[in-house]
Write a protein that binds this DNA or RNA. Structure first.
Lengths: 124, 124
DNA sequence: CCGTATCCATAAGGATACTG
DNA sequence: CAGTATCCTTATGGATACGG
């Protein structure tokens, strides 16, 4: 509700962050379910329920909240088809697609850290 | 000036994460002050107080907690010199140094997203 | 100098029920 | 189908004071 313009949503608390560029990136992709959502969207458009099925541990509420933030940050588009039954699709914007190398380097490091077999292939 | 930036990365409650590799990476570097700390350590060892001065918005308590987690995850070493007055230095491990490309790609994306001038040059 | 200990406000986020 | 609305718990992390 309190959109101050520049970067992100709401201050978590009072202390000022440093505002460094890495924190900016984290503020966009660092949400609890955002990396997984983004990875799946790298493969193309997805409907809301399809997305939910791909993040089975997140509630619909959580998926919605994360999607809204991603949308606000300009990395995904929300496309509403005025049909019955309703259909809504999510897709990456160009900015969102530009996250691919970042996500991949994070995935690679994480895989090395944890051992590839322990990680979820769905997240690909 | 910039507002604080919410960064959530670690499991807050009980729900299972996906366990995907990106989340693993986020669980290591995603802490509130960790990226800044890691960036400064890329330039070499630092004493506790020096580190605190470089993250002026974080309390000593927060810096300590973040350092302990980084240590537990094996990305930094804590070196205690048994002197009076006490001296403690922190340095990256090899694993920590292997984060450099990840941090850099995140920094680059964040800089592009926010505009370089808005970001903190201290954070490199 | 390098931290801990304690207290406490708050916001993240889970569960569940409901709706256009 | 694609979400909201509501309630409620608990982890996060800020402030402050103290200690080896």
């Amino acid at each position: 509700m309190n959109d101050s313009i520049p970067i992100q949503t709401r201050p978590r608390r009072r202390a000022e962050r440093t505002g460094c560029a890495v924190e900016v990136t984290l503020s966009v992709i660092g949400g609890l379910w955002k990396p997984v959502i983004l990875f799946h969207l790298l493969n193309g458009k997805l409907r809301f329920n399809a997305l939910c099925r791909m993040v089975p541990n997140a509630t619909a509420r959580m998926v919605t909240l994360q999607l809204r933030e991603l949308e606000r940050d300009g990395v995904i588009n929300r496309i509403v088809y005025p049909e019955v039954p309703p259909r809504v699709e999510y897709e990456l914007t160009d900015l969102g697609r530009s996250l691919e190398p970042v996500l991949l380097s994070m995935r690679n490091w994480g895989a090395g850290f944890a051992g590839i077999e322990q990680t979820d292939p769905n997240c690909q």
